[in-house]
Nucleic acid binder design. Structure first.
Lengths: 108, 108
DNA sequence: CTTTTTGCTACATATTATGTAGCATTTGTT
DNA sequence: AACAAATGCTACATAATATGTAGCAAAAAG
């Protein structure tokens, strides 16, 4: 399933880019894959093991989707974030610190 | 499924908060629900219709999860973001503009 | 050449989501 | 108080997705 912005999306007929994005990021493993690739490019099998050995079936499916959306591409070093992917990953970075603080407060 | 930070997560034995977070946000409809609630609080049925009539079954499941993680709570106006939820939503806001630019470039 | 490693596909099984119906409780209305 | 409508769900059958393992064809390494 590749939901391009500009066209209706699973559960949203608006076609608004933000909806396409939320929909895509909400697919299982997508955020994790972007996260891992933002640290560094990886071969299929490397990426697979960095994502806790997720099954090749969906890894492949997600990579197809992400490449179709121009967020990921194949480079000499294996799979890597595209320009768009990089700029998106930058927005996701702050989640790291946020999560740490959140966790610290939840424990209390 | 409620994956609290600090304890192992589906597909991650590290227990790192960021992994718990990516895992949670990666569940279908979670990002969308947070997005909608960030605009304003809503009753169960309001929220359901704002999320394109997603089934009550999973809406309820997601709300349980999100409440368990202290991201959402029940207020006088219905379901609403908690303090943590609000600060998280702030980080998600930039995705809106990003998505618009992304979509504009994809069309070319 | 021969052996590894890589990038997948196939396929059977398990988990998760969807959609509809409906019921118990709360919230108005008269 | 009595009735109607809206709300917050739960049940359940069906459909869609994910998992996990095996393995194969192509590329890279020795």
């Amino acid at each position: 399933m590749t939901t391009k912005p500009g066209q209706p999306v699973r559960g949203s007929n608006s076609g608004r880019p933000i909806m396409a994005l939320l929909d895509t990021l909400g697919q299982r493993w997508v955020l994790r894959i972007l996260w891992e690739l933002s640290h560094q490019a990886a071969t299929f099998r490397e990426l697979q093991s960095r994502c806790d050995s997720l099954s090749p079936t969906i890894l492949n499916k997600r990579l197809q989707t992400l490449r179709g959306l121009d967020l990921v591409l194949k480079s000499e070093n294996g799979y890597a974030l595209s320009e768009h992917g990089i700029s998106l990953a930058k927005l996701l970075l702050p989640l790291h610190n946020w999560a740490d603080q959140w966790a610290a407060q939840l424990d209390k």
